[in-house]
Design a binder for these strands. Structure first.
Lengths: 207, 207, 207, 207
DNA sequence: CACTAACCGAGACGGTACGTCGAGTCTTAAC
DNA sequence: GTTAAGACTCGACGTACCGTCTCGGTTAGTG
């Protein structure tokens, strides 16, 4: 018979002193603070170490380089609270979604970091992948589930590709906020206008 | 009659040796080369100077810092050749436009630089302004003139705000290329699909 | 009786990696080499670093500026071997001393550095102090002990101030070598001539 | 018949605009000012040009480099007023001379410059030569003429080499002021003490 | 309890680039 | 041909971080 410690397949604890969880927390928090205070470009590991009250080596023992640290710091903070949908109609749900999605990256000041990720994506596939799974796919899951829900209920055209619909609904607000008017609050009714246009199209009706 | 000194409006040449136009060219070209070779983050003024065959001071005499140099280097190269529109219908024009606009920033490898500008915009209003006038407004002028043209001809709904229409038409492709699939060639028919969806809307027709 | 913790006077080692003694040596040696090869004026920290195979920061961590480095480099090399005196008479001792003292600063090529120290002394009290303790006082100790020795034995006038005697004996050779004929070997009998003149005076004897 | 301009043998005036004598003066004066204000090491031609209200090229047209300029600036200012000798006895003349000679280089703040010249002499023969003719020989002429004068009158030992006597009389004060006590006023009677010791010697008289 | 192994802080290490300064030269237009 | 002005190349300055290393010392599990 086996005793209570039959952990044959348990993961072996490595010998030696285990890494300090306090250090982990302090480093990530210091990183986030400095990131929001001074931006990605001027983030210095030495400052992170100083603020976290930690040796530089302690950081490099956990992350291979600056990028990895930033990525992890970000990962811990994306979109905590869900967006609540009215559920009364597709139009209402989409307006709430468009409003909420964009609000997130802007109000948390994370917009700059996302843009940095996009910029680095071209050269650093790790960042590209992280950005996709962290930001893009989280958004897409949200919006696509809503769209599919209303497609089953007949409010979304059955012949439309969900991917196309996602783009049509979310991209305009994103571009407006991030590219056209960075840092400016959009008009309150913009989300509604965009969703309405996406729903009914912009072509003049055939006579 | 004018006297011999009628150069009231002549622009005074400043005293001293004029700045070398050769140096200007060499610096900007070297910057652009290094930018495309190694990215924004790792661009070093010393390397620019070395490649341009120019002293570092010669660069700093012209631009106060790295950002200003990059901005100027970019400015000289945006959107040289026009996009030719078929003109046969609004749909055909928009498809050509959507195809063309995005192709530009991607095939020239300028995508990363634009993302960098967006990232820096939050902290550096100069960059924000430059990005707007250089990238955003150029695109918008193009698309809005086309839209207005077809609105007069009755193909675009007369009650639609042009700005909303611009977003609906261009944003989806931008988001697809830049955020969803950075560096990947989109399916050939994507532009058409997006434009068609924008034109006719995604809502199921009322019975 | 002492308790178990009687290490009250133990010197605490500072935390962190200790400075490399190899680097110390390499830097000082490189400094000395460049100093003798190219002179004080054209000594460049960057070249010192390059020759010592050391990073520039490693130098600046130890010395606040070029002057301090030069001073330390000098300090390590002053007057290693003693001058041996015959001891047969005051005259013989002084001739040997005068010969030897000046030979030192000249044959080691240190003459230029001493002149540089004198020149900087006016503006930099640190250098003034270092020059005094390093060069002047070392010489003076030597000569004054010899003079005192022979004063006790009645060969030096008992009413003469030792300081005056020091000057009278050593200054002429110094001025000859450094000011009148820089870099030229003096006649072999100059030391003897100068000492003899200093001993017996230059005034014609009273009839 | 010849006109009023029959300057057949006159030295040909070169064509073009003659060099401005004002510029010469302004440059030399500015150099001297900056030299006394900030020392040799930190003298910058650019600052000289700025203060003199002159272009840098105007300086380089006249002097090949910084050293040459400094040398010329110095040359214009050495020993303006003569030292007046009492003439009552050799002892009185020598005391006045010793007093006066050293006072010069010190009270005019020229001491540092002389030391700089000595330091550079080793590597730059031009400076060595200039120092010799400008400083050393001027002093030596003065002192040697006095010594010769009194030798003829029997106050200086007839068998003594003038050169030796010069050294014995002037070197001690020089070393005292420049090497032992830079920037400090010597005791009022030091000159007398030194001269007296040089005259009568420091050896105890034979019984 | 001693041993071992990995952790911790501190900070030095070789590098690379920063943005500034000055040297000495060159190129304008004006005189 | 000289002048003021200011550009040019070159080389060094002193600083800031990078990512790595070496210290003395700590903190777990294992023998």
């Amino acid at each position: 018979m086996m005793g209570p410690c039959a952990d044959a397949d348990a993961e072996r604890r490595p010998p030696g002193r285990p890494r300090s969880a306090d250090a982990d927390r302090a480093i990530l928090q210091a990183t986030l603070e400095l990131l929001t205070e001074s931006g990605v470009a001027s983030l210095a590991i030495e400052q992170v170490a100083a603020r976290a009250g930690v040796a530089k080596a302690t950081i490099y023992r956990r992350w291979p380089n600056k990028e990895a640290l930033i990525l992890d710091a970000l990962a811990g903070t994306v979109d905590e609270k869900p967006i609540d949908l009215p559920g009364t109609s597709m139009r209402d749900d989409l307006v709430a979604l468009v409003q909420g999605i964009v609000g997130r990256s802007v109000h948390t000041g994370r917009g700059q970091l996302y843009a940095w990720m996009v910029a680095e994506s071209e050269r650093n596939p790790h960042i590209a992948h992280k950005y996709k799974s962290l930001v893009v796919e989280r958004r897409r899951e949200l919006i696509s589930s809503v769209l599919r829900h209303w497609q089953e209920r007949g409010e979304l055209r059955p012949d439309i590709d969900i991917e196309i619909a996602e783009l049509l609904v979310t991209a305009p607000m994103l571009v407006y906020r991030v590219h056209w008017n960075p840092g400016v609050e959009p008009p309150a009714d913009l989300a509604a206008q965009l969703v309405d246009a996406a729903l009914s199209g912009i072509a003049a009706p055939q006579p």
